[in-house]
Nucleic acid binder design. Structure first.
Length: 417
DNA sequence: TCTGGGGTCCTAGGACCC
DNA sequence: TCTGGGGTCCTAGGACCC
């Protein structure tokens, strides 16, 4: 048995913990630069606001219905996520953190009333963190996901749903739109609809050979999971990232290589920090900058460069200077760049490095010590306290509706009295 | 005026080996 | 006339996820 615990309208729910008067009202959360809608309360969904809707396109609607708007506050959401996950970890010895707002729990070997378990876990999460959580339990991860979605549609389930009997599963799958199944995206569902396959049940009635021919291995896995055969690995241990990207859209386009370099240096610094956090090195980076694709009348460019390192590195100095050089190489004069980023590729663990035959290994050791000193200082005094002079002091972004860092900044703590 | 950010896995095809 | 058989590794692009 597997459980899936999914936080309802997560970013909105985080904001509501500290603004309880917003319960029952339409609320949305926006992405970087107040660009797109990334979370919606049920009331906002009912108004027709879609996931990914650009803010400027729904402004009228927002004013008409008095929707409360927040700029994304990732520090807050990350902290609330940790709190929910610590409650979940107490409920099962084995959990898999799937995303900021979802975790799987391995319940195998537990001889308990699963329906009661699901409802109690949901209740406990809410009581201890203030976040409403839907808990679905079934024999595969895909079915558990479907069970958790049922909790959101049926209040009577009280946040927990155990879906086990074949008859019950059939009844649910017959009503469940195939495009809402985990693993079936836009392309696949379009193909399925053209074949008059509209529900999860219809899909599960195809033969394995048909599914394999049309959708390959991933399709077969989903098909098996719907039929109650576990086919998607439970990933208990946290894997280190294979790629690490830091990228942003700018609130205002950038037209000079100097300014672009200063921004890219910040992304490069962030990338190096994340590499060190997971004790990894990279032997390649990709740097890119692109123009605003929505401005069709302006010159378009996707400028990029891949740089390889002789010796794998996580050094801020090495990654920043390679990135800045890449910008100088690929910059197209006359282009107005809207977005840029740095990705670390070919990542390996830092313990099994081979020293270079051609580079100064002693220098590398000095650099490692420098990095760890910088990391300690920034950990103690705040991110960006100590940084390379090529870095811009910050990435300019629009955040007109930012909420306080209620739980992670002392001066922002809510006052009770 | 204005349009997010960060990932994973699979597959087909090319280049190469003996 | 007729052109083998069996592999590996890498990469780009596609599809998917939140």
């Amino acid at each position: 048995m597997f459980a899936l615990a999914d936080c309802n309208n997560f970013f909105v729910s985080c904001e509501r913990v500290f603004r309880p008067e917003l319960n029952g009202k339409p609320v949305i959360v926006l992405s970087n630069n107040d660009g797109c809608t990334v979370a919606r309360s049920n009331e906002a969904k009912a108004l027709g606001i879609k996931m990914g809707d650009p803010y400027f396109k729904i402004r009228n609607l927002i004013e008409r219905y008095g929707v409360t708007v927040f700029s994304g506050n990732m520090a807050l959401y990350g902290d609330m996520s940790q709190r929910v996950k610590s409650v979940l970890r107490e409920a099962s010895p084995s959990t898999e953190s799937y995303s900021i707002d979802e975790s799987f729990l391995d319940l195998n070997g537990m001889d308990i009333d699963f329906d009661r378990f699901a409802k109690e876990l949901s209740e406990r999460c809410f009581r201890w963190t203030g976040i409403p959580v839907s808990v679905g339990v079934s024999s595969t991860k895909t079915l558990a996901k479907i069970a958790s979605k049922l909790c959101k549609s049926y209040k009577g389930l009280k946040g927990g749903c155990f879906m086990d009997r074949p008859g019950d599963i059939e009844k649910v799958l017959r009503k469940f739109p195939v495009e809402d199944v985990w693993g079936i995206g836009r392309r696949t569902s379009a193909k399925l609809h053209s074949m008059f396959i509209k529900t999860a049940w219809d899909f599960s009635r195809l033969t394995e050979a048909q599914v394999d021919a049309m959708f390959g291995l991933p399709g077969v896995r989903t098909w098996k999971e719907l039929r109650g055969i576990p086919s998607i690995e439970f990933e208990d241990i946290v894997q280190s990232k294979q790629t690490i990207t830091n990228s942003r859209s700018f609130s205002k386009e950038i037209c000079t290589p100097q300014e672009l370099s200063e921004q890219v240096a910040v992304f490069a610094t962030m990338t190096a920090e994340k590499l060190r956090q997971q004790h990894s090195l990279c032997s390649q980076i990709a740097v890119y900058a692109m123009t605003n694709r929505f401005k069709e009348n302006e010159m378009q460019a996707y400028s990029s460069d891949v740089v390889s390192f002789m010796t794998p590195t996580s050094s801020t100095g090495a990654i920043v200077s390679a990135s800045v050089k890449a910008v100088k190489d690929f910059f197209v004069p006359g282009c107005a760049y809207k977005k840029a980023g740095v990705t670390a590729l070919k990542i390996s663990p830092e313990h099994d490095v081979t020293g270079s035959l051609f580079e100064d290994n002693l220098l590398a050791e000095k650099d490692r010590r420098l990095m760890s000193a910088i990391d300690s200082i920034n950990a103690a005094y705040g991110r960006g306290t100590l940084r390379l002079s090529v870095c811009s002091d910050s990435i300019k972004s629009t955040r007109e509706h930012q909420s306080p860092h209620y739980s992670t900044r002392l001066s922002d703590f809510p006052k009770v009295k």
